[in-house]
Structure formats: C-alpha cells, structure tokens
Design a protein around this nucleic acid. Structure first.
Lengths: 141, 141
DNA sequence: AATTTCTTTGAGACTCATTATCAATAAGGG
DNA sequence: CCCTTATTGATAATGAGTCTCAAAGAAATT
C-alpha cells in the first residue's frame, strides 16, 4: 500500500509531474479493486466517495499509469477500454464471453515465448501485446 | 471470382436479405485488395469509381460479411477497425508497428493450438480470437 | 510575503468511428 | 405491373476519449 503510493510519487517525479491529491485518489481507486473497470466506472466510484475529480483527470492519470507500467489497458473488443492495476499481479491474458461479457484470466507461458520469437523474426522491438479469446462461457452455452 | 459472388448470394438468401448492387459492389471492392482497409477507405474507393453507395451501407454490408465469415474485422488498437476478406486466405495474426502503423501478418500454428486448449480448460466454446503484437518495426527503431 | 512562472484541474466543446432514424426508393413474388 | 417489404442514403445521434482554456494551485524568485 504505502509502497504503491511511493511508486506513484517516484513515477511522477520521473515524468516531471506533480503529486496531487487527484492523482493519488485515482491511483488508490484503481488499486482498491481487482476487477476490470473502465474509466467511467472509476470516475463514478470516486465521485460516490465525494472525491473531487473530473473525467478528464481520470483519463489523464490513467495514461500516466499505463505508460509507466502500473496499469494495464485492456481492449475488450466491445465498449470502453478496461483497466487493471499490475501491482503484485503477474502477466495474463483474457478469455471473454461474447454473451455475458464475463472475463477470465489465463496464463500460458509458451504463448509468450512464441510471441517473442515472432517479433524477433520480423525485426520488431516488441512492446505490449493483445491476446483475447472470444467465446461462449459454460453458463451461457 | 464468380464463385465469390455466388457466395454472397447464398449468404444473403440464408440471412433473408436481398441481393442489391450496393452489396455486390462493397463485396467486390473488399475482394479487390489484400490490404487492411477501414470502412472509410472502402467507401471512398467506391465513390471514386462512381459507385453510388453510402457510408451507412458500407458499414451494414461489412457487418453481414463479418458475421458470415467472409471478412475479418481487425481491431488494430488505434483508429478505425480494418477489414480483410478471407477468400482463399488462411488464418493469421498481426504484428503492428506503434510508430508507423505498418501491419505484418504471421502464422504460428502452435499458438492456435494452445488457444484451443485454454478455451477447453475454461469451458468456453471458442469463437474468434484476437492476437496482436505491438512493437516498433525495423525501419522505425 | 508578494510576485512571477509554471502545472494542473474541470467543464464543456470537440473529434472520430460507428450506429440509429426515417422518408424515399428499389427488389422480387404474385 | 402491383404490392409488400427490404434497402438505401442523408443526416442526426451516440459513445469513448481528447482537447481547450480560463481559473486555481504549487513552486521558484525577489
């Protein structure tokens, strides 16, 4: 917790940005849940707690967090992007139900390795990747 | 070619839709190129050829084609979705340059297999998937 | 402490891709 | 050829996200 706040402070210094209470609140809000939430959900959750913050600031802060590897942006194929913090969480991909929108996480190390190989083959310096499986979950079948 | 037109006719019958010259032109336009193009590019290409069609119809037609597995929708992470026809083309994924937007295609059978295994594991009936690698290409590094 | 300089914020305007609306037009069966 | 129904196109609406800019806040300078 305190560690995570420190992390934010460090990143802000590194980026030449100021530590403000809005940025702190956004970060704490994202840390407070392991759900995949979109910017608007984060914004409303903060407003419900009477935190004074605007949508624009939520988006701006998330950008900083994503750029600095503290938050992952998830393009779930439909609707707004979702976000999840990466503190103490190891890398995973997602399998998404096309009916109910349920998102499950999975890890396949071998896929990661194959991806690196592909990138090398094509002379790309690999940044992030995006792997989603879309299907119909057990409950919806 | 003639085959592909037949294919369109069949699909339209199956969907209870009519065969119109707009739908035919959109389909031919998509078939005419192996590039990854967005709806607007397809629309403008048709207009340049003096084909009378609207943006709305382009989108609507593409929807039908995607639903019937004749066209693939590509979410390239930034900007509009891109489309590519699937006639005589085998499945591949994409590696995308985050600087210049260049898209290269690759095939890794093993990844496909691993994906199927994951879906099984989680009890999902696998539909499509989405695998993009984002990086910086050789030229942009 | 006051002033200056620079950053951040928030409200709302704006953008871009896509979807919805709906009157006018076109297909296709009878 | 007529009639019903689907389709089209122009345009409005939507949704997610970004931009703008004046006002407020921090930091540095005097």
């Amino acid at each position: 917790m305190a560690n995570n706040l420190e992390k934010l402070k460090q990143v802000l210094v590194k980026e030449g940005l100021r530590f403000t209470c809005q940025r702190e609140e956004v970060w704490k809000e994202i840390l407070s849940s392991n759900e995949h939430r979109d910017a608007d959900e984060i914004y409303h959750s903060l407003r419900k707690k009477a935190v004074s913050v605007s949508r624009a600031t939520v988006y701006r802060t998330i950008d900083v967090l994503v750029k600095n590897n503290m938050v992952r942006k998830l393009d779930v194929g439909i609707g707004p992007n979702k976000f999840e913090h990466k503190m103490g969480i190891k890398h995973h991909d997602h399998i998404i139900c096309m009916k109910c929108g349920k998102i499950e996480e999975f890890v396949v190390n071998q896929i990661e390795k194959l991806q690196k190989k592909v990138a090398e083959e094509y002379g790309f310096k690999l940044g992030r990747h995006n792997l989603q499986l879309f299907g119909i979950c057990k409950d919806c079948q």
